[in-house]
Design a protein around this nucleic acid. Structure first.
Length: 271
DNA sequence: CAAAGGTCCTGCTCGC
DNA sequence: TGCGAGCAGGACCTTT
């Protein structure tokens, strides 16, 4: 479920409740997430103070003096801040009790999320080390995409969804960005010019920035950390719009499968 | 039965 | 033939 804007919205939402709070207790109700949660995790987290929560790609990094908790929400995960008297819900797998009396709860029906503890700097962790640049950083440029895509035949949509190339471009924003840039999602990445990569980089940055500003777009069950439903109806131009008229040319939006993911585009406007 | 917002891992293919 | 990089598909799950 969460794309980068939702993860960033989550980070901003929970930070005021977590920052400088000490974790007094950790409850693991179901350890079978994407990878089994380490048995040692509760004892490593207990008594640690959360100095900050940062984000790298779609990972949330809970920074403490002793180490960092690396959390991923997977496809269907969400975090919410509860009071002690609020009952747990179905699929609440992990709870962090905080010194201010709040409880941070991880809910994840599909259990594709993950939790890792590292004593090193998070950047050195296996899951983080090999990641490409942040899309909103200045290091993410057209030159970077152009240089790394030479001689590559993979579809451009799969290319920009590859976290080793650039992080944080999920299935929705890949389609949306390619539409804005006028690039056919199936085009081989190695056959996109530098000029068109300029348009694409701008489109990715604009799309993500706008979504973060809007508080994250959501489709089904994204719950904001304070418990408010995050049903922000984002205006998608092509995602989920199969058969509806293209805003630019009026032709029906097409749907294809690329890399086993639904892909939406305009056959006329995107080449 | 199909599809849903993620992404790591495995094994195959391709070109040097 | 061997090797590494690139690539497709599978895997992990529940809900609608």
């Amino acid at each position: 479920m969460p794309e980068l804007p939702e993860v960033e919205t989550t980070r901003r939402g929970i930070l005021p409740y977590c920052q400088q709070q000490t974790i007094s207790e950790v409850t693991i109700r179901n350890r079978q997430l994407r990878w089994p949660i380490a048995r040692s995790l509760p004892s490593q987290l207990r008594h640690q103070r959360i100095d900050d929560i940062q984000r790298r790609a779609k990972y949330l990094l809970f920074i403490t003096k002793a180490g960092t908790l690396i959390l991923h929400l997977g496809m269907s995960g969400s975090l919410r801040v509860s009071n002690k008297d609020e009952a747990i819900q179905k699929h609440d797998h992990v709870e962090l009790m905080l010194s201010n009396g709040k409880i941070l709860r991880l809910n994840d029906p599909r259990r594709f999320g993950s939790l890792h503890w590292t004593r090193q700097a998070a950047e050195k962790h296996k899951l983080i080390r090999t990641l490409g640049p942040e899309p909103l950083d200045d290091q993410f440029t057209a030159e970077h995409l152009y240089a790394t895509s030479r001689n590559r035949r993979v579809a451009i949509k799969n290319f920009i969804m590859n976290s080793h190339i650039v992080v944080g471009v999920g299935n929705i924003y890949a389609s949306e960005s390619l539409y804005l840039a006028g690039i056919n999602p199936g085009r081989p990445a190695g056959r996109v010019s530098l000029q068109r990569y300029e348009k694409l980089v701008n489109a990715i940055k604009e799309t993500l920035r706008a979504a973060i500003e809007s508080g994250g777009s959501t489709l089904n069950d994204f719950i904001k950390p304070d418990g408010q439903p995050g049903y922000f109806q984002h205006h998608f131009r092509v995602y989920g719009k199969t058969g509806l008229p293209c805003e630019q040319c009026g032709q029906p939006i097409s749907q294809v499968t690329l890399g086993q993911r639904s892909t939406f585009y305009c056959k006329t406007c995107q080449r």
